[in-house]
């Protein structure tokens, strides 16, 4: 043991003392800068945990392949005709699945105590939540792009061209910003990241199947068709399909955006309140 400079454990006491002595508190950063710093954190996570991205895109990719080649002929007469129908819907499914991760990562922060650290900092309080949207949006765009590229590789041709495809992707991403607050609320209420994942997918899976993503609802029994018609996921899929086909369906687009705004208006305030008090 050398009591003059180091402890038995080895932490360099002199360096620790210097490190402690050397700081002066800088002026507080602005709100935008704080939110952007949290955005940077979100991007780092995308970079470090790419498995997450694979996890969420693998299911829609499998669905595209399975439905196109297994059921395509039976449902639409030919695989290429079915791919033409299903792809815009798969874009919706792929990106919406990704929104569940907003809740999962928030819950991880909560259960690991990271939220406590952020909340004890002298920062603009909504910044962590707003900043996480930036990382989320990268995930949404990647998840959507994977499906579009896969579709094109399999022979899908958007009649609306690249512009139509990009417009559809943009619409779905904006819708996801609204939906992600629902999962953020779940993330703040449930006990573990796994619970968020399970309940999140339990909600979004049936909603996706009970939509017009896979089949034309006119073939369904009456009550089911009525539900499918008002399911927001159907409306979003219709809007996305219309954009990709180059014939924008104004009503579906406006309703999709309104639903997104409505979800954000209800669930964003609940999220911020829960975040502040948990």
């Amino acid at each position: 043991m050398n009591p003059t400079t180091t402890t038995a454990g080895g932490a360099d006491t002199a360096a620790v003392r210097r490190a402690i002595a050397s700081t002066e508190r800088p002026p507080r950063p602005g709100r935008l800068s704080t939110a952007l710093t949290f955005g940077w954190r979100g991007m780092l996570k995308v970079k470090h945990v790419p498995e997450q991205l694979v996890d969420v895109t693998i299911t829609p990719v499998m669905f595209v392949l399975m439905f196109t080649y297994l059921f395509g002929g039976a449902i639409a007469g030919s695989t290429s005709a079915y791919l033409q129908y299903i792809l815009p819907g798969m874009l919706v499914m792929s990106v919406l699945f990704t929104t569940v991760y907003s809740g999962i990562s928030l819950n991880t922060d909560l259960t690991k105590g990271v939220v406590d650290r952020f909340r004890s900092l002298p920062i603009w309080r909504p910044a962590p939540l707003l900043g996480s949207l930036l990382g989320d949006s990268v995930r949404y765009v990647v998840a959507g792009t994977v499906i579009i590229v896969l579709g094109v590789a399999l022979g899908y041709r958007p009649e609306g061209g690249a512009v139509g495809a990009l417009a559809a992707l943009a619409l779905v991403v904006v819708f996801s910003f609204g939906l992600s607050w629902v999962f953020s609320v779940l993330g703040l209420l449930l006990r573990s990241p796994n619970a968020v994942m399970n309940s999140g997918f339990m909600a979004i899976f049936p909603l996706t199947f009970l939509s017009n993503v896979f089949v034309d609802p006119t073939t369904l029994p009456g009550p089911l068709e009525a539900f499918v018609d008002v399911n927001p996921i159907s409306i979003l899929a219709t809007a996305s399909r219309s954009l990709m086909q180059g014939q924008p369906d104004g009503t579906a687009i406006v309703v999709s955006l309104a639903v997104a705004a409505g979800l954000a208006a209800v669930f964003l305030p609940i999220t911020t309140r829960l975040y502040r008090s948990r």
Binding site: R25, G113, V114, R117
Partner: peptide, 17 residues
């Protein structure tokens, strides 16, 4: 908050960074 800092029971660091 501008004067304190918290080292929580759970080692509140971001594991994915």
């Amino acid at each position: 908050r501008g004067l304190v800092s918290l080292t929580g029971q759970l080692a509140s660091v971001d594991e994915e960074l």
